[in-house]
Amino acid sequence: MVFYFHDIIYNGKNAKNATSAIIGAPAWGNRTILAGQDHFGDLVVFDDPITLDNNLHSTAVGRAQGLYVYDKKEIFTAWLGFSFVFNSTEHRGSINFAGADPLMNKTRDISVIGGTGDFFMARGVATLMTDAFEGEVYFRLRVDIKLYECWK
């Protein structure tokens, strides 16, 4: 299964369109602009649309909901914990993910650690790839999910 999720971080001016916000920042940062030093210490919560293609304006098949923490000073990297929550005619339920995201790598694998509904007790791997980004406000991830176990 391949999905795209679209993250638009709040930057102090885009509240109407933002799908994520900085909720924690280091002493030298703030909650409107990502911190320097590879954003180390910023904690971001998100509720992003999931689409079947890379068009932000396509019909959403669900939401990517969770958080990411920029966790290293020397290089751009984060830790992710999130769920894909589906409510479409094709899929119902959620898939849960957690893991390190070394953003400078072209592809990164994170663990599928569970699920509900159509994805009850899902296990597997999701390969992430940054599909697009615009400055520090928008990024789109391509998520290729391979489930090895799923009870339905």
Rank of each mutant, 00 (worst) to 15 (best):
4 Y>R: 06
8 I>F: 11
9 I>E: 09
9 I>H: 09
10 Y>T: 03
11 N>K: 04
12 G>V: 08
17 N>E: 15
18 A>Y: 07
20 S>D: 04
24 G>R: 08
24 G>E: 07
29 G>M: 09
30 N>R: 03
31 R>K: 15
34 L>S: 08
35 A>C: 03
35 A>Q: 02
35 A>D: 06
35 A>H: 01
36 G>H: 13
37 Q>K: 14
45 V>E: 10
46 F>Y: 11
47 D>E: 05
49 P>H: 02
50 I>S: 08
51 T>F: 05
55 N>I: 06
57 H>P: 02
62 G>E: 02
64 A>L: 04
65 Q>F: 06
75 I>F: 14
76 F>E: 14
76 F>S: 11
76 F>I: 10
80 L>D: 14
83 S>H: 10
83 S>Y: 02
84 F>M: 09
89 T>G: 14
93 G>K: 05
96 N>K: 11
98 A>H: 04
99 G>M: 00
101 D>G: 10
101 D>P: 08
102 P>C: 08
103 L>A: 15
103 L>G: 13
109 D>S: 09
112 V>H: 06
117 G>S: 06
122 A>L: 00
122 A>I: 07
124 G>T: 04
129 M>L: 11
130 T>M: 14
131 D>T: 09
133 F>N: 14
134 E>N: 13
135 G>P: 07
136 E>Y: 13
137 V>N: 10
141 L>I: 11
141 L>C: 07
142 R>M: 09
146 K>A: 12
147 L>D: 05
149 E>D: 15
150 C>R: 12
150 C>G: 08
